[in-house]
Design a protein around this nucleic acid. Sequence first.
DNA 1: GTGGTCTAGACCACA
DNA 2: GTGGTCTAGACCACG
Lengths: 134, 134, 134, 134
Amino acid sequence: MILIDRFSPKPVFEQLIDSIEQQIVLGVYPPGTLLPSLRELSVTLSINPNTVQKSYGELTRRGVILPSVGSGCYVAPDAPERIRKAAESRLPELTRLCADMKLRGVPEETILEAVRAVYGCETVTIQKEESDHA
Amino acid sequence: MILIDRFSPKPVFEQLIDSIEQQIVLGVYPPGTLLPSLRELSVTLSINPNTVQKSYGELTRRGVILPSVGSGCYVAPDAPERIRKAAESRLPELTRLCADMKLRGVPEETILEAVRAVYGCETVTIQKEESDHA
Amino acid sequence: MILIDRFSPKPVFEQLIDSIEQQIVLGVYPPGTLLPSLRELSVTLSINPNTVQKSYGELTRRGVILPSVGSGCYVAPDAPERIRKAAESRLPELTRLCADMKLRGVPEETILEAVRAVYGCETVTIQKEESDHA
Amino acid sequence: MILIDRFSPKPVFEQLIDSIEQQIVLGVYPPGTLLPSLRELSVTLSINPNTVQKSYGELTRRGVILPSVGSGCYVAPDAPERIRKAAESRLPELTRLCADMKLRGVPEETILEAVRAVYGCETVTIQKEESDHA
DNA sequence: GTGGTCTAGACCACA
DNA sequence: GTGGTCTAGACCACG
């Protein structure tokens, strides 16, 4: 299920990108899956079709999804790998946040601890690989 | 020293807030200090007085500085604590970001390394990293 | 209906905040309502868009309205409660004022009468009393 | 003892007026008393002499104090009465505050209760009249 | 179209 | 001189 918060500081089109990538990584949309159509998504999420188009366009540019004229978009075979690379490009975002906290006197260990806590707890990481031991 | 990067994606008024809070945390502007006046800052930084006013207004709202019409703005007695606490309250933000990256397959060490890099380098370098020149 | 008195000693942006919060409390703008856009309000009230923005910004900070770039500002679900609580937190202000007047020999009944006058008359009359035309 | 808060939203010269009137009403400065000189007050309170002058000027205008060229200002014989009248002229201030609270949904009884509480408790109301039963 | 930021220049009361 | 408010007009990314 995809949820959009129109009042989030994060733009809707970015939220949609994140959500779709998340569904792919979680295995809900495994490679080869046909994604919902523009109109379907815009209706179910109550957002502007142009916004969905913007998200699909960016996902296409990243090679995460493959548009097929007339029949929608499909999840690329190497989507998980491309998603990981895209995620690493978000490091500057994290760097900026940490810099903000550092200059305000937050100790390094506080942040490292928070990061380790995230990676420490085994959350729902049902990778596609885990379920394709065929 | 306060520096503004006009090409940073971060709004000027936020950069100014960051700089002033950093000077306070570093002890360059200890509690009780009289800050530069709106007009003085606007001239030395070559930005509009209204922009400085916006920053000062936000700092006032946060209880970091105390304005006194006719005599100037002073650093609040408990400014450093307020700044640090406000920064620590942003930890969930960082946690969410890390969770997103973990889910997408970014290894823990990549993130820890980025954090250490932020804390390892000197302030001037941080200033550079804050600006993407996107 | 929102009215601005250019000759009131109260700043325009505060008058606008008052008016909007009142409309929310009165139920004219129930939670979820889409507020007039910045430009629309600035035109109908003949005030500068920046001034409206300042009011909207403050209401956003108070959690009374939720802005969504590209679609407008909406009244928050818990707006009425937030507004009332914020107002009640100003009681000490009133207490101090009354203590001052008591100390100077102003009889209790004079004050009670003034309060009853405020609550006795209709909203329109309150609008008039708010402006001193000093 | 007179205390000035330079960070109060209330202007310093008004605080000084209030404080002096309070000292008079409390009997610390009974009618006929020679008030501290401009310079003395400006030094002990660490405020600008012009500000003290402004306060003294307003008190003179109200007839609360009587300037005597070359020898300072004296508390007027009918000072308490004039102070009471001046206090009543502050009713619009109270009216505005109540109007603000009313339009935000604060019930009338909440305010009346607060007022009665102020007048109910017997605070330090050592009127001059009480100590001149000579 | 929307909210948000920035500049330029003006005016006010206060110290 | 100070902080604070307001106007006018411009630009940006988002929907």
